[in-house]
Design a protein around this nucleic acid. Structure first.
Lengths: 396, 396
DNA sequence: GAACTTTCTCCACTCACAGGACAAAGCAGG
DNA sequence: CCTGCTTTGTCCTGTGAGTGGAGAAAGTTC
């Protein structure tokens, strides 16, 4: 199989990333941004065109003289992203600018094991490909999985909620199947990259993405890049202690954040509230659906159910307590809250903000926005495309 | 004043840092390490010699052929470091390899204000200079202060324990006095740099330095460089909550780590134990010295005083609780414990280790040494010299 | 003393890049 | 339509960085 094109030097890589992040640009504008002479710029753009990575796209409006030629990433460029969640698979195809051209999502239990889940993911990708979204070569694939990953080896290591995935060679398996470069990372890290690329974090160098889904995790961005720690487990904040007593956690300790809040804990508490009669609304929802999830609590809270509001407030307080410590420690420029439970919205956010602003240092909170993600379910796949494009748009 | 020499390109900078960190090297060895042709290497070394930054130092032993020439940093190179603590001033002069040639330390209350304290620091430096430690030009000065710093501006910002220092132009003041490049940073960050340069962290890219002195702080090293956060307050962990109730803290909240432990809290608790009669040993020490400090608790604990051991254990437990969370979040490759209270030694360390290993994720603690600093009081000044030498040994 | 090794210097050649000259393309005003 | 001015893109040459080979210098081993 022919290896797909890669930039040959740092200038080309810089130009590609610029076009990816800022969209098509006139040659004149590119010349202003990159520090290169016009002649050198022309040479590198010609080479990139020769590699099939960029092409010209007409002429820009005149700025008082000859019109400048517009350059764009080749429209046939394709990145693929798989976002394997605890209970879902998301697959997307993007163009070179990481615009999502097609995105499918379906429920899937990650505990079925690597072989089953990855096969299903490839099926979903095949569906997108058959819709004509991929013409030629795929330039790279980014994969997120819900657990710790050895980034270098491209495989999960000791993942607590993914039995049968331990040291499964995900990168190799998918790479052979799709014949393109593949990188594997934690799904929360990918969401952080998604926010960095097209979310609220675009202009922030150091920020945290807190994902509250089935579990609770945190993506750490330092200087515009994911920080993974020495063994790839950085950001695993679900088992930070919030109280000495508290519900037992699957990890064996008591009082973990995840045992207090997060999708599973919230569903547990909501069911208890329904059955105890403290919340008639939740009881009705339980009857209707057979089981309760975060979305039902959100529904009940929005409808004014006092017990649901109390559950959300209390959860927010616990998240806020942990986050307050992390904000003091890390001093981020932004905190983005995302994940299924983020559907609880502004009640949750208000509680988190309240605790953080009260308990963290004034210097650290002085100019610290704490916001909900605006990318809905797409953060993960955009981040996957971003991950691999950062890699591919690097000198070979 | 003549500007002191700086490397002219990245190769020269790389060579200087190599000679600083690894000591004198033969030209042949340098050629193996840096990726340059022998001719180019010779050219750059000649230029560095012309700038007065390196010189040759005889011949190495033969490796079976012609003997190779040894290159070293010019022995007249000098860096100066000021470590302003809450209750002390340390001043040191180092050579180009950051070996401490002279080091003086004296008690000093930082609350006397910037003018008084910095004047005293300059006096101490003058004493070192008059001892003949500085012949010619000083190539740079690093300054640590016990509070948040705007690194870019070289001045403290809103420091809680340093009244009269807020936005005082420390860098400018010292720079004019000494006529050399000056950088100012938080003192804990400098200690982390000291550990990175000549302590236990030499081979670790990502680590934490926890300083337990009058206050409690944390230096964060990411990829071999200090992480400062967006407003320079990263690592300020003294006010992370460890319990809902607990002693009131100067910051206005209750239950802060620093209100439970740290030099001031430990002295307070020791005095209470002495007066209440729970600890006859501490009572005697209190009588002898008029007041109690961490060192006295250490002394009593070493002598078997049960109450002192209990105080240290309890303090270690609180530090461990906070640290466990940070280890889960940050996944460092090493944790170094330093500061005055670190004199409490292995009782403290054992307690911290116990809590962290129990409460953090196995993946994060699997290969995580938690150790005491071996640099005693020198970490801060070595870090100061390292800070400025990193800056000076960078292309102009 | 001969043969082999390693180190260092000199030199010729390649390549990246800048910047000027010039042509092409556009605007504004008469 | 024509003139003068501006902007853009291309071509060309000069400069400096860097490589790698030839060969001298300095050592070791037998």
């Amino acid at each position: 199989m022919r290896m797909s094109a890669r930039p040959q030097n740092v200038h080309q890589a810089r130009l590609l990333r610029l076009l990816r992040d800022e969209g098509p640009r006139s040659r004149a504008e590119l010349g202003d941004v990159v520090r290169l002479s016009r002649s050198k710029l022309a040479v590198e753009l010609d080479r990139l065109a020769g590699l099939g990575l960029v092409e010209s796209a007409g002429l820009a409006a005149s700025r008082g003289g000859r019109r400048s030629g517009i350059v764009r990433l080749s429209p046939s460029l394709r990145f693929v992203a798989f976002d394997i969640g605890a209970t879902s698979i998301d697959v997307a195809v993007t163009d070179g600018g990481l615009e999502v051209l097609g995105h499918v999502s379906e429920p899937c239990d990650v505990r079925q094991g690597a072989t089953v889940v990855l096969e299903r993911a490839l099926d979903l990708y095949a569906g997108l490909r058959d819709r004509g979204l991929v013409e030629g070569q795929v330039h790279g694939t980014g994969i997120g999985v819900p657990g710790p990953v050895s980034f270098r080896d491209g495989m999960p290591v000791a993942p607590p909620i993914m039995p049968g995935w331990d040291r499964f060679p995900v990168r190799e398996a998918i790479g052979q199947e799709l014949g393109c470069p593949v990188l594997v990372d934690n799904d929360v890290n990918l969401m952080a990259l998604g926010e960095l690329h097209s979310g609220l974090a675009r202009s922030v160098d150091d920020f945290l993405l807190v994902k509250i889904g089935t579990g609770i995790g945190c993506g750490i961005v330092v200087d515009g890049a994911i920080y993974r720690g020495v063994s790839g487990s950085a950001g695993d904040i679900g088992h930070i202690r919030v109280a000495d007593d508290g519900p037992m956690c699957a990890c064996g300790n008591a009082g973990c954040l995840e045992a207090f809040f997060g999708g599973a804990a919230l569903a547990r508490d909501a069911a208890a509230a329904a059955r105890s009669g403290r919340s008639p609304q939740l009881a009705r929802l339980l009857e209707d659906h057979g089981e309760l999830a975060a979305a039902h609590v959100a529904e009940a809270a929005a409808a004014g159910d006092a017990e649901s509001v109390r559950l959300v407030r209390e959860g927010g307080r616990h998240v806020g307590q942990v986050l307050a410590g992390l904000v003091s420690f890390f001093n981020p420029g932004l905190v983005v809250v995302a994940g299924g439970v983020a559907g609880l919205g502004h009640t949750l956010l208000a509680e988190i903000r309240g605790v953080v602003y009260r308990r963290s240092l004034p210097l650290a909170t002085g100019n610290l926005p704490i916001v909900l993600s605006e990318l809905a379910g797409a953060a993960g796949v955009i981040g996957g495309a971003r991950l691999i494009s950062d890699h591919v748009f690097d000198p070979a």
